[in-house]
């Protein structure tokens, strides 16, 4: 249980420490901390507004899918397979969507937490899955596209293996901690 205690201490202390130390470091480096903060904070509104169309598109499709009873059918169909590795069926769609779409996964993860509660096991698991990797296909498309690379060689394989490892590790760590 010391591992869990340590992890919890880190989770609890990291944010207040960063909120204290970063402005202090800024002060030492003679940054006008208040002005810099306000300038950065303006971006917060833009980021939140920018994801609205993605959230609406995915949440509507997912909401319709759930309401029709199709999600329950799908969950029942895949449950035997996911139960083998201890993955709750509700978390599976988020795991499958993670490499494809960051905003889509965020919508799914929000929906899972709204339905099951953010502090349920599955709520914590999907939160961890969301943060465990980046959106592989988006990163590859943007970065390779920018320099005109068409032969991507082993980039997709390496990225997807990383995603798989991240999701497996998220499941394992959440089982150990929560």
């Amino acid at each position: 249980m010391t591992f869990a205690a340590l992890a919890n201490a880190i989770s609890t202390a990291l944010v207040p420490l960063l909120l204290l130390l970063i402005p202090l470091a800024g002060l030492l480096r003679k940054v006008r901390v208040y002005d810099a903060f306000v300038e950065g904070a303006k971006e917060g509104f833009n980021v939140a507004v920018r994801i609205i169309p993605f959230l609406v598109a995915m949440l509507v499709a997912i909401g319709m899918f759930r309401a029709s009873g199709a999600m329950a059918l799908l969950a029942r169909a895949v449950e035997p397979a996911t139960r083998l590795v201890g993955m709750p069926a509700e978390a599976l769609p988020a795991a499958l969507l993670r490499p494809l779409s960051g905003s889509g996964t965020l919508a799914l993860v929000s929906e899972v937490m709204r339905t099951n509660g953010p502090d349920s096991f599955v709520g914590r698991l999907v939160s961890t899955i969301y943060g465990s990797t980046e959106t592989t296909f988006y990163v590859l498309a943007v970065y390779f596209g920018a320099v005109g690379i068409r032969g991507t060689r082993h980039a997709v394989a390496a990225g997807l293996l990383g995603d798989l490892a991240g999701i497996a590790a998220a499941l394992l760590v959440c089982r150990l901690l929560f």
């Binding site: 340590l6 992890a7 919890n8 880190i10 989770s11 990291l14 944010v15 914590r124 939160s127 961890t128 899955i129 943060g131 465990s132 990797t133 390496a158 990225g159 293996l161 990383g162 995603d163 798989l164 490892a165 991240g166 999701i167 497996a168 590790a169 998220a170 760590v173 959440c174 901690l177």
Partner: peptide, 16 residues
């Protein structure tokens, strides 16, 4: 979820 996320993404990075 901060510590679990750091651990899981560290695994993902090492494997990738």
């Amino acid at each position: 979820i901060v510590a679990p996320t750091i651990l899981a993404s560290a695994c993902a990075t090492v494997v990738a």
